[in-house]
Amino acid sequence: MTTALIVDDEAPMRDQLRARLAEVWPELQVVDEAANGIEAITLAHEHKPDIIFLDIRMPGLNGIECARQLYNQAHIVFVTAYDQYAIDAFEQGAMDYLLKPVTAERLRMTRERLQQRLQSAPSDIGVQLGELTNLLRDGGAAQPKRAYLKWIQAQVGNSLRMISTREILFFQADEKYTCVQTATAQLLIRKTLKELSDELDPDEFWRIHRSTLVRVDAIAEVTRDSRGRQMLSLRGYPQTLEVSRGHSHLFQQM
C-alpha cells in the first residue's frame, strides 16, 4: 500500500487536500499530518511514507528546508500558493507541485506521475532545491496568493443581484443549476458546484457532500442521527445538512 504524509501549517488546507486525495486516489493511505517542518521530519522518520505533500511557506522550518532533509527518503510534492513565477522551476525537474487550492483534475495528473515514479527510488533533487530557494528569495516570495471568488451573481427577474460569499450559508447542486442559500433567500445560479469548489477559498468553504459546499463559520454544530450519519446545523437555517462518508474526516472528533 502506498503511504503519504501531509504537511501544511493551515488545518483547512490539510483537510482539503486529504478530501481531494480520498476522491481521486482512494487506495492511498495518509498515515499522518504535520503542521510544521520540524514535526514533518519527526513523522517522516517514524512512518517512512512513500510520498510527502509539503507546503512551502511555513513558520520556522519552511517546506524547502524540510525537503532538503527528506527528499532522499520520499517522493516530494510541493503544495504551493506561489503562481507561475515559481511553478516554472518545478516544471524543470523531478519535483511535482500542486497549486492551492488543489483541484481534482490537477491531483489526478500528480497521481499518475507518482505512480510511475514509485517504481524507482526518490530522485536527487538537491540542486533544484537550491535553485528554488534562490528563486523564491529573489522574487517569488513577493507573489500574491491566488484571488478567490468573493461575489456571486444571481439573476432575479430582470435584475442581477450581487451576493457576498460572507452571506452564503451553503451551495447545493440542483440538476442543471446550483442553489445558493443565504439566511434570507434561496437563489439559482448556472455555475456548477465543481466550478465553485475550484474558485472559492478552501478556508471559507468546505465540501461536505458531492452535492454540497458549506461556509465553515456558518456551522453551529455537528451531530449524529439515528443512522449514525453526521449532520450539520447552520446558524440562521432551520434544516440540517448531511455529511457524506467520504467527507466525514473533516469532523474527526465526532
Rank of each mutant, 00 (worst) to 15 (best):
R227K: 12
Q239D: 15
G130D: 15
Q153F: 09
K100W: 09
K145Q: 14
N134K: 12
T182V: 07
L21I: 14
N158E: 13
G37S: 09
K150Q: 15
Y177N: 10
G236E: 07
G228Q: 07
L232Q: 02
I125V: 15
A74Y: 06
E27R: 07
A141H: 14
E242F: 01
G228H: 05
L70E: 06
A220D: 14
V214M: 13
L149C: 13
R210A: 04
A121N: 04
L135R: 15
F53N: 08
M231I: 12
L17C: 02
V24A: 08
F205D: 05
F205R: 05
T2W: 10
R20H: 02
P238H: 09
E33Q: 11
Q181L: 03
I208W: 08
I168S: 08
D8V: 12
D138G: 08
E39L: 11
A104I: 12
E167A: 14
A11Y: 10
I6N: 07
P101I: 01
E91C: 00
A35D: 09
R68K: 15
G63F: 04
R166T: 14
Y177V: 00
L132Y: 02
M231P: 04
G93F: 02
D217F: 01
R207K: 14
A86Y: 00
R146E: 11
D203N: 11
P238K: 04
E105G: 00
N36S: 12
T110Q: 01
R113H: 14
Q181W: 03
L193T: 02
I152A: 02
I41C: 13
E105N: 08
L21F: 08
L98Y: 13
Q92N: 03
L107H: 05
K191Q: 15
I41A: 10
V156G: 00
M162V: 09
Q84I: 05
I189Y: 05
